[in-house]
Design a protein around this nucleic acid. Structure first.
Length: 814
DNA sequence: GGTAACATGAATCTTTCA
DNA sequence: TGAAAGATTCATGTTACC
């Protein structure tokens, strides 16, 4: 009995409640199941009849202010939870509008001139209505950015909400996503939570219009440009002055680089798109004999950095000793300027030689020559002979191996080197990864160039288990591949030409295959940012430099997927026991009424009475329902495809209809294979008749008309493209074949439940591996064009989580 | 057709000086 | 402190040459 009580405590019930439940159940040794039922009863009723403070606490925990919660309870009574929630949502909406108005007033007040740069200034209510109504077309993203939302959040919201969404809906989505992120942080592992609590900066929901950044918002370059400190200078710090926002902390790490001297406002914009992390500006002249002013936005730790050995020479004369003999005393340079992509002409060398032969002692001539030498980075290679650096000399300055770029044209060598990292500088920053990844690292390298980041990791002796490289220049790809081969790398190198090839699906596939990325490194093109560009220095929106947004897109996809993988692994590391899952579920649910619609633990259940009872209690109630769905299958269905087979929770339903069925299981996650196979064996299916296929519903790897039936239970809520998935299902079905389905769908338009679904949709997508709450799957199926029509029933039942209802089930005929 | 040489500017930051 | 001058800058487009 003590063990049973302990289990109930572990599930989250209080001792007091368990005592009451045992008492009410009666008898000296009541059945655990009976106690459990009483506990649920008590739990549910206690939610409604508990003290006011408990209700307040819970609503505050949902993100509402204490003041509003009390107001709502006073107005609607503490027992009417639905009315209270409805009222709170209305209050929150009104408060948000009020907040917006205040910000507008403040913006106008703070604005020096009342021109049109502020979108809100002078807007009447009808103007606002017009704006809400006219929120369509290509300018939607820009509108949101002008309103102050980060581009990343805005573009995700637009993508998820769809073309016809109103401004209010998209803004609601962003707001809900912010809430979801905060909840996500709540669910972070204990060690992550500890980090989150320290120096948490207040979240910024809205920003000023940054198209024309004010002076306060500009990021100014530091002087000296030493970032968080450099080895040979005093002032190294080990804690960031401005902490990394919680959303960006922890692995996978990222490291973004670009030129320091950009048009005004560019770094502020890049920072705002990379989690508001303040850039670290470093001039490579503190590492080598040439300047290279760069900004780095990264979430790496900064403590215990170290230099790679051997360290480069610190002055021109030490790096290139042969120049000492010819170096005139009046040229005081010890450092070179930035290595650029172009070099001086041979004609300039000739001109300088001729002038010096005639006027060597003329200070004016000397100054002019030094100016030219600085401008073109010339070094003295003979008497009165100042010449540009050779490519191999640039390689040395930049920390690359000798002849790293050999084998391509001289011009391409200069171009590639001029665009590369300074390896020693980057390696200093990346050195903190060495103790973190002693067994190696998985790298996603965007805009790889000639592989400066990878050379740094190699010189740090951090094994690269995997490098996924994206580089558009064939010349650069060849250089990098050559480096990979010459250094006998043992890891896998996967190359992409264009960042656009790397969509979310590919990223997730790679992460599933290799267990995720540890580092996303890259510097997007600076062509439209660089000071040396006199033709098209058009800023971050320029043709090439706008690829920065692809870096952000890909990084976000990687971190989002990693977050889901981490959560999944966390469940596993905790034993993936039913109790753990249930405890989390019960915490989320208010009131505590639930039925698990589809849950089969990936690992065998612990054989305790309580967990088994719980499992039985939840699953028995849905069994009848699922049986009805699967009754559509007959022994004539010899070859059946199940989309999203997961761990195989439906195996017994298949086995009950046709034990000899040939079952094809499709799932994007290859790790599901072993669980699905075990489930098939447990259900009594012949393992030889079961085939697992890794893939997605949008691209089913089967021939046309090759299966008798397709089954999908709770899958269309998760796929990226419902219409495409349905088209694929039609394609692989034989004529007369049937699509059998069970899905949860959006609640009725305009209902409170629908509003809650809309609010919780982003959270659900994060917690439930991309599951959408607001899909109109019924309409999609009806419009999919199944030639034999479709029969669809709608039911409303309690489910897990409770917002995933109502449900539809039925069959569509090809 | 491919490569190399050559001519071209302005934004931004830094330094100087009144 | 602010204006002015000086210094620096992951470049581009055209032409010449092989």
């Amino acid at each position: 009995m003590d063990e049973t009580v302990a289990k109930f405590i572990e599930m989250g019930f209080s001792m007091e409640m368990i005592g009451r439940a045992i008492e009410e159940t009666g008898g000296e040794n009541p059945e655990p199941m009976m106690i459990l039922e009483t506990l649920f009863k008590l739990s549910t009723s206690s939610e409604a009849s508990s003290s006011k403070s408990k209700v307040i606490d819970e609503l505050i925990g949902m993100g509402f202010s204490e003041e509003l919660v009390i107001k709502a309870i006073q107005e609607h009574g503490e027992k009417n939870l639905e009315e209270i929630t409805n009222a709170l949502l209305s209050y929150a909406e009104a408060e948000k509008m009020h907040e917006t108005e205040n910000e507008d007033i403040n913006n106008n007040y703070l604005s020096d001139d009342n021109d049109d740069t502020n979108l809100y200034s002078g807007l009447s209510s009808s103007d606002e209505e017009n704006e809400l109504n006219s929120f369509h077309g290509d300018g939607r993203l820009q509108d949101l950015i002008k309103m102050g939302y980060p581009r990343k959040e805005a573009s995700i919201a637009l993508e998820r909400c769809g073309e016809i969404a109103s401004l209010a809906e998209v803004v609601d989505f962003i707001f809900a996503a912010q809430m979801a992120r905060q909840l996500d942080e709540f669910w972070a592992a204990p060690d992550e939570q500890e980090v989150l609590r320290i120096n948490e900066p207040p979240p910024r929901r809205r920003r000023l219009n940054t198209d024309i950044a004010s002076d306060d918002e500009l990021i100014r370059l530091p002087n000296p440009m030493i970032g968080f400190g450099v080895p040979k200078e005093p002032g190294i710090i080990t804690e960031r002055p401005v902490p990394i926002p919680s959303i960006a902390r922890g692995p996978p790490y990222f490291y973004y680089e670009n030129v320091a001297m950009t048009p005004k406002g560019v770094w502020a914009k890049m920072s705002s798109h990379l989690y508001d992390i303040k850039p670290e500006f470093v001039d490579s002249l503190y590492f080598c004999a040439a300047a290279r002013k760069r900004g780095y936005i990264h979430n790496l730790p900064i403590k215990n950095r170290f230099e790679i050995q051997p360290t480069p020479h610190y002055t021109i004369q030490e790096e290139f000793p042969l120049t000492k003999k010819w170096w005139p005393a009046w040229d005081k340079r010890t450092k070179l300027n930035c290595v650029l992509t172009c070099i001086a002409s041979a004609q300039l060398t000739n001109k300088i030689r001729k002038r010096l032969e005639k006027h060597e002692r003329d200070p004016a001539v000397q100054k002019d020559v030094v100016d030219q030498c600085k401008k073109w980075n010339l070094v003295w290679v003979g008497k009165n002979k100042a010449a540009p650096l050779e490519p191999y000399e640039m390689e040395r300055l930049l920390g690359f191996p000798n002849n790293h770029t050999r084998g391509i044209s001289r011009k391409d060598r200069y171009k590639s080197l001029g665009n590369s990292f300074q390896v020693d500088t980057v390696a200093y920053h990346l050195s903190v990864l060495k103790p973190l990844y002693p067994k190696g690292i998985n790298v996603l390298s965007l805009f790889t160039g000639i592989g400066g980041g990878e050379v740094a990791l190699h010189r740090l002796q951090i094994p690269m288990k995997l490098v996924v490289s994206v580089e558009i220049s064939e010349v650069n790809r060849n250089i990098f591949r050559s480096f990979w081969e010459q250094t006998n790398q043992r890891g896998d190198l996967i190359e992409f030409r264009d960042v656009e090839e790397l969509d979310d699906h590919k990223i997730e596939g790679l992460m599933d295959q290799y267990g995720g990325f540890d580092l996303v490194i890259g510097g997007s093109p600076c062509n439209n940012l660089a000071g040396a560009n006199r033709v098209s220095r058009t800023g971050l929106e320029g043709d090439q430099s706008s690829l920065f947004y692809d870096y952000c897109r890909i990084l976000e996809a990687v971190r989002s997927k990693a977050s889901r993988m981490r959560r999944r692994d966390r469940y596993k590391s905790l034993g993936n026991s039913f109790q753990v899952k249930l405890k989390e579920t019960m915490f989320l649910l208010r009131p505590r009424r639930l039925i698990l619609l589809e849950f089969t633990p990936p690992l065998p259940l612990p054989s305790t009475d309580t967990t088994q009872l719980l499992h039985n209690a939840f699953c028995s109630k849905i069994e009848n329902f699922k049986n009805k769905v699967f009754d559509e299958l007959t022994t004539k269905d010899e070859k059946v495809l199940e989309i999203g087979i997961g761990t195989g929770p439906n195996m017994r339903y298949f086995a009950a209809r046709n034990v000899n069925v040939t079952l094809l299981g499709l799932d994007p996650n290859p790790k599901m294979k072993k669980y699905a196979r075990k489930a098939a064996v447990r259900a009594g299916l012949n393992p030889k008749n079961f085939r697992f296929m890794q893939g997605v519903g949008e691209a089913i790897p089967l021939e046309d008309g090759s299966v008798d039936a397709v089954v999908a239970t709770l899958v269309l809520c998760t796929v990226s493209d419902v219409t495409q998935t349905l088209n694929e299902i039609k394609r692989v079905l034989r004529p007369g074949g049937r699509f059998i389905f069970l899905e949860h769908v959006a609640a009725e338009d305009g209902s409170l439940f629908r509003r809650l679904q809309k609010l919780l949709d982003p959270l659900q997508q994060i917690l439930a591996d991309g599951c959408h709450l607001t899909r109109n799957t019924r309409e999609c199926i009806l419009e999919a064009g199944f030639s034999g029509g479709a029969q669809i029933e709608t039911v409303s039942m309690y489910s897990f989580p409770w917002v995933t209802r109502p449900h539809i089930y039925g069959v569509a005929y090809k």
